[in-house]
Amino acid sequence: MACLPTVPPALALRKWLGLGLFLLLCLSLGYALEKKVVKSKVGEKVGLPCCHEIPSSESLHNYRVYWQKNTTEVVLAYAEGKKISKHERYENRTEMNTTNLTLWISPVEILDNGPYQCVVQHLRFSQNSVVVCDEPVTLFVTADFSKPNITAEVVNTSCESTEMVVKCSSHGGFPKPKISGALNNVSMLWNASWVSESSLSPYNVTGELWLNVTKDISITCTVEYDGFAKSTSLLLKKTNDCVVPTVPPSYNVITASSIIIIIFLLAITLAARYLPRHVCSHCCKPQDSVEEGVKECMKPPVSSKVTSETSSV
């Protein structure tokens, strides 16, 4: 049986201490990185923390403080307790705390989005300056989007389905959003498009979808941006059940019906015209004169009894 080599206690302790220090360093870096990001909305007041705080035994007169954006644009600068520089875009919107050197911006604009840097120099008696700290902080600005608006346009309809173009739109927000949706709580994708004048301008977003609606369904549109979300739902209704149209009679049917009606009318006309003559003909016979015919017709009938008596006489 082989023996495992033993590790000296001092070496093992040093190893565990090194691992513990490494973990503490990672945690501290993570905490520092978390502190370096500040979030704010358009129109709010936000404070960007500096990497140095002036001790109570000293004052701002012993320091030079530079707040700059993107390392090229000086937002605010102090030297020996006096303001020496201020950017015109931040005029009447910025101020600095003279103790913890926090930069306050109010009201926040979309153009304020980006990295900032606080540079602090300590003035010695020999007038030489020493950089005390120089660390960045990022301001992440958001602007609320409008509530999504859903519209549906019927393109084609039949007894089985209704074809629609559905659009969802929202505007005026920042940063660039995501747009998602659901049909009866089942996820679906929009054909999305975005419009913005620049990378630091409000966004307008529009989603489009073609649907064949065979029954009433609910559609939801959601706009997401920097952890925020706004949603709207709309009930899409299928068109009413189709009504079968009445089929017009064919040409042959119309022709036959017309012929039957014409024959019927001619029969009535002929009957009305010739029927009186036939009725008169069986009671009256034509005579040489009109008067004799009338008298003959007006004679009362002679009974058979009288005729027999006359014959015997």
Results as ranks from 00 to 15, higher is better:
residue 185 N to D: 13
residue 62 N to S: 14
residue 143 A to F: 05
residue 108 V to Q: 02
residue 21 L to D: 03
residue 139 L to H: 10
residue 167 K to I: 01
residue 82 K to G: 15
residue 85 S to M: 13
residue 141 V to S: 03
residue 48 L to C: 06
residue 282 H to F: 14
residue 106 S to T: 05
residue 69 K to C: 09
residue 88 E to C: 12
residue 156 N to T: 09
residue 111 L to R: 14
residue 17 L to S: 04
residue 76 L to M: 10
residue 289 S to V: 07
residue 211 L to Q: 02
residue 295 K to M: 08
residue 181 G to Y: 07
residue 184 N to P: 06
residue 188 M to T: 09
residue 149 N to V: 15
residue 177 P to H: 02
residue 64 R to F: 00
residue 1 M to R: 04
residue 69 K to R: 11
residue 4 L to E: 15
residue 158 S to G: 08
residue 223 V to Y: 02
residue 212 N to D: 09
residue 39 K to Q: 12
residue 18 G to E: 13
residue 182 A to M: 03
residue 72 T to R: 06
residue 293 G to T: 09
residue 237 K to Y: 08
residue 206 T to V: 09
residue 214 T to E: 14
residue 280 C to N: 07
residue 65 V to H: 01
residue 49 P to V: 02
residue 136 P to D: 10
residue 13 L to T: 15
residue 222 T to I: 10
residue 309 E to A: 15
residue 103 L to D: 01
residue 238 K to R: 10
residue 224 E to C: 02
residue 190 W to N: 02
residue 188 M to N: 08
residue 234 L to K: 08
residue 75 V to R: 04
residue 77 A to R: 05
residue 185 N to M: 13
residue 253 V to M: 13
residue 226 D to F: 03
residue 189 L to A: 14
residue 114 G to I: 05
residue 89 R to A: 13
residue 271 A to C: 06
residue 41 K to S: 12
residue 238 K to M: 08
residue 47 G to E: 15
residue 267 A to S: 13
residue 138 T to M: 11
residue 246 T to K: 14
residue 223 V to Q: 05
residue 42 V to Y: 04
residue 295 K to R: 11
residue 250 S to K: 07
residue 159 C to F: 05
residue 263 I to W: 01
residue 73 E to W: 06
residue 25 L to A: 09
residue 85 S to C: 08
residue 209 L to A: 10
residue 266 L to P: 04
residue 208 E to I: 14
residue 55 P to S: 00
residue 237 K to H: 15
residue 181 G to D: 00
residue 292 E to Q: 06
residue 90 Y to P: 10
residue 162 T to W: 02
residue 259 I to E: 01
residue 99 T to P: 09
residue 145 F to G: 00
residue 204 N to C: 04
residue 32 A to T: 09
residue 233 S to V: 12
residue 111 L to A: 15
residue 101 L to H: 02
residue 66 Y to G: 11
residue 229 A to Y: 08
residue 280 C to G: 14
residue 37 V to G: 06
residue 139 L to I: 05
residue 229 A to S: 15
residue 155 V to E: 05
